[in-house]
């Protein structure tokens, strides 16, 4: 569920930044919530409401999604617009940052923690942090080492096997 919300969220946001600067996400957020609420109402009915004397698995979700639908419906009509922050050029950085986090997870799964952590620190420090190359390299190498020692050696977290483990182990 969170996945779909996230995906649609980033989608709307893309169109907004392509449009005018003054275009705010007005009304889109409550509409998304409304859609979520309505979907949940039907979903919980499918689960089986049962009776009040013998509540089924869907009864409580049903009540909650009614509350969500109700509040979202009112918000569609009278949402104060001043709550919304405008989309800025910084938004592009965020999307790039999000993509990089997704890539981090994939790298983490396939190549292990050390490679993924080093590359992520490299990217974030250099591109998003604007550090010098020297500072970036020092921090990325040092940071990866410290994190590895902390999580793997000190806390004993079983990270997925990666390149480094293969090298050390082999």
């Amino acid at each position: 569920m969170h996945g779909s919300t996230a995906a649609s969220g980033t989608g709307t946001e893309g169109t907004a930044s392509r449009g005018h600067r003054w275009l705010r996400l007005h009304r889109v957020a409550p509409l998304l919530l409304l859609a979520l609420g309505v979907a949940a109402v039907f979903g919980s009915r499918r689960l089986g409401l049962g009776e009040l004397t013998a509540p089924g698995p869907g009864l409580w979700p049903f009540i909650v999604s009614l509350l969500l639908t109700g509040t979202a419906a009112v918000l569609v009509l009278l949402d104060p617009a001043e709550d919304y922050e405008p989309w800025t050029r910084g938004t592009v950085r965020i999307i790039a940052g999000l993509v990089s986090l997704g890539v981090f997870i994939l790298l983490f799964q396939t190549f292990g923690f050390v490679v993924a952590a080093f590359l992520m620190l490299l990217l974030w420090l250099r591109v998003f942090g604007g550090e010098s190359w020297r500072m970036t390299l020092v921090l990325a190498v040092g940071g990866t080492a410290v994190m590895y020692l902390l999580f793997v050696e000190a806390l004993g977290v079983p990270f997925p096997d990666g390149l480094v483990d293969a090298v050390i182990g082999g």
């Binding site: 952590a117 992520m120 974030w124 420090l125 998003f128 942090g129 550090e131 940071g143």
Partner: peptide, 10 residues
Amino acid sequence: AGILAAFALL
């Protein structure tokens, strides 16, 4: 802030 963010995320 950039350094803080990078490490916090990791």
